[in-house]
């Protein structure tokens, strides 16, 4: 049953991706400027410009251009960047793992701290932990992320000097052999502990910056779901059975409270897939956000299209993962 459901969801991704690609393709046509000019160079002659326009198929009607793009896409060709002249797929292999690593670290912090704090706040409702968390959550959600980033840089890199200010590795550290593109994992697999530590230290500030809002959000939802769960009959029954309060929270209330939390975590992942631009720029992270930012400002349509499709695909898989997780958290949920 579940297999059929997953297959159906995977099949349904195709029209979604097609829809997104059509939308992105048409919107990119509305951008000011001339992509042929961007590809040919600013001082190319009209003849050279026309040759480039023809070579890239930009002289064709937009639906034909789109058809040509999809045809190449089906062969795994995401096109060539107009500005860097490199294959988009190849560039994505460089930039995407950087964002994935940042996203992974951010989500570890968000999930672990968000759920822990949420549970603690709920189980000590009205106490100082709860009040402190509520104050933190307002601050975390309300504080502009760029301000928080600069503040953390100033405190931890400027004053305390305990963390690096930017980048993915220290200048003197040689990147580990590429396996996944995630420096921490690659260094771990290669047994390069010092490199792994260095990569980890560089992750702290950007991941912390990105996770503050998520911790607040996940924490608040967890708190509220926990409060709701703690008032249910099964919790009362568990307590009546003589279970310790900790066991009641963790074994009975928390699993039931995880359903809305999982939804929020899924949304956080989706947000981060496209929301790291600012932080990547501030921390010179060199990930998908930076690549997207450059692509947009350079009117590099193949890059914009490539990023849109990759982000959408990742988003769809995250959604699917969350939906499948529901069935594990709540056995009553069945997909047919």
């Amino acid at each position: 049953m579940m297999g059929r459901y997953v297959a159906r969801r995977l099949f349904l991704m195709i029209p979604v991706l097609l829809g997104v690609s059509i939308l992105a393709f048409y919107v990119s046509q509305l951008l000011p400027g001339d992509p042929a000019r961007a590809a040919a160079g600013r001082l190319a002659t009209p003849e050279q410009l026309e040759a480039v326009r023809e070579r890239l198929g930009l002289d064709q009607p937009i639906p034909v251009q789109y058809g040509l793009y999809i045809g190449r896409l089906l062969q795994g060709d995401l096109g060539t960047s107009l500005s860097s002249k490199q294959e988009v797929a190849q560039e994505l292999r460089i930039f995407f793992p950087a964002t994935l690593e940042l996203l992974f670290a951010t989500m570890v912090l968000t999930v672990v701290l968000g759920i822990t704090i949420g549970v603690r706040a709920a189980t000590s409702r009205g106490g100082w932990v709860d009040r402190a968390f509520l104050g933190f959550s307002y601050l975390g959600v309300g504080m502009p992320v760029f301000f928080l980033a600069l503040l953390l840089q100033l405190v931890f890199a400027g004053w305390l000097r305990v963390l690096p200010i930017a980048g993915r590795l220290s200048l003197e550290t040689v990147p580990p052999p590429v396996l996944t593109g995630l420096y921490t994992f690659d260094a771990l697999f290669a047994g390069q502990w010092a490199t792994m530590m260095d990569a980890g230290r560089h992750l702290v500030l950007p991941a912390l910056t990105l996770s503050i809002a998520g911790i607040s959000e996940v924490g608040r939802i967890t708190r509220s779901a926990m409060l709701n769960a703690l008032e249910q009959d099964y919790v009362r029954t568990a307590r009546a059975k003589g279970l310790s309060e900790r066991a009641v929270w963790l074994r009975h209330a928390l699993p039931n409270a995880m359903l809305p939390t999982t939804t929020v975590i899924g949304l956080q992942v989706a947000f981060l897939l496209g929301g790291t631009v600012l932080i990547e720029n501030i921390f010179s992270w060199g990930g998908l956000g930076t690549y997207a930012w450059k692509g947009i400002f350079r009117l590099d349509i193949p890059v914009i299209m490539g990023i849109t499709l990759v982000s959408t695909t990742a988003y769809l898989f995250v959604n699917l993962g969350v939906d499948l997780l529901y069935t594990k958290l709540d056995p009553r949920i069945r997909y047919e």
Binding site: L150, Q153, L154, A157, G158, R161, I165, A166, G167, L171, N281, I282, S284, G286
Partner: peptide, 16 residues
């Protein structure tokens, strides 16, 4: 040659 886009961060790095 390293990229640090934010001037405030460049300033911190120089001071340190």
């Amino acid at each position: 040659f390293r990229v640090i886009r934010e001037e405030a961060a460049r300033r911190i790095a120089l001071r340190n």
